[in-house]
Simulated scan of single mutants.
Amino acid sequence: MEGTNLTVVIEFILLGFSDLPKLQGFLFGIFFVIYMIILMGNALIIVITQVDPSLQTPMYFFLGNFSFLEICYTTVTLPRILMNLWTQNRHISFAACATQLCIFLILGLTECFLLAVMACDRYVAICKPLYYPLIMNHKVCSRLVAGAWMSAIPVVIVLAYQIFSLPFCGSNKLNHIFCDIHPLLKLACGDTSLNELSVYIDGALFGMVPFLLILVSYIKIITAILKLPSVMGRYKAFSTCSSHLMVVGLFFGSALIVYVRPKSSHSAGIDRIFSMFYTIVTPMFNPMIYSLRNKDVIRALKKVLPK
């Protein structure tokens, strides 16, 4: 543009928690402890689902994969947050930001699909118990997990390409704790309405569809449980499903608020809080939710952990 001085953005500055200068060391300590809890808790779930013979079932196969996913999911964002807090160097290159966003979205959508697969597994186990070993055999379970991991890749690559093909020619200050869609679109020059529409459509299809599948599965599960004649049987069935429902509520509740609500209601502070829920808080509580509410997992932990 003739007569106008434009600066092409080649890197971004993640503002993160720069508005809390006196709390940088405290925040680093908190996030470091949380990261260690996430790594150790989810790694322990992976180990016990692999070594304990009583946990060699489809439910725990999915749980082990889910724990591995949670480790990957937090590793995409938390180490960068820790580095920014420790060094106070908040710069991230254009390529690194694109890579972080791409991997983050792939893992996030994979989590949506995997939670839906776990709900379907519980539906078959409770509503069709006689056919459960036949339907949920190892080959089917492996294909479901592979499908959950692979389905998101082409969608995310197209979405990330659309976002990073936009011209970034103004401020490079990203008001977020990691590279995410809405903060990036705020920095883009020109009209981003088509990109925002694409985000909402993808969010509705690949976020709401798994959520509705989970909802339908659990409506059928609860209906089947209420028909059980034994009180103990109903309690055991509810106990098995309640852990998964708690994780679904934490993850989908916070993620849908960030990605599906109208643009006019977006706020950097609110987005930052809710994004911490589905990227940090949920992965931290998952091992606790699944272990404290599951007698089989507690029994396996007692075998593995030193007395």
Rank of each mutant, 00 (worst) to 15 (best):
Y60R: 06
H244N: 15
Y290I: 09
L44A: 14
F12Q: 08
I157V: 11
S254V: 01
V47P: 01
S217D: 08
L213S: 15
V199N: 04
T282A: 13
P229N: 13
M246P: 04
A160F: 00
C127N: 10
K236R: 15
V304W: 13
M136E: 08
F113Q: 14
M150Q: 06
S54H: 08
L82P: 04
S239A: 11
L39A: 07
R234P: 02
D180Y: 06
F178Y: 15
A96I: 01
N172M: 11
R272M: 13
Y132A: 02
V155R: 07
T192W: 06
Y200N: 03
L215Q: 11
G203K: 00
V8D: 10
S267A: 08
P262L: 00
G269R: 04
V117F: 12
V247N: 03
R234F: 05
F26R: 05
V199H: 03
F66Y: 11
L159W: 02
T75S: 07
H176E: 15
G29L: 05
I37S: 04
A125N: 15
F104N: 03
L292K: 14
V140M: 06
C112M: 08
T240N: 15
Y73C: 04
P129M: 02
P58H: 06
H91T: 09
L226F: 12
C189L: 04
G233D: 05
I177S: 11
L115K: 10
L245Q: 09
G16W: 07
Q50S: 08
N65W: 14
I81T: 08
D296Q: 15
M59Q: 14
S275E: 05
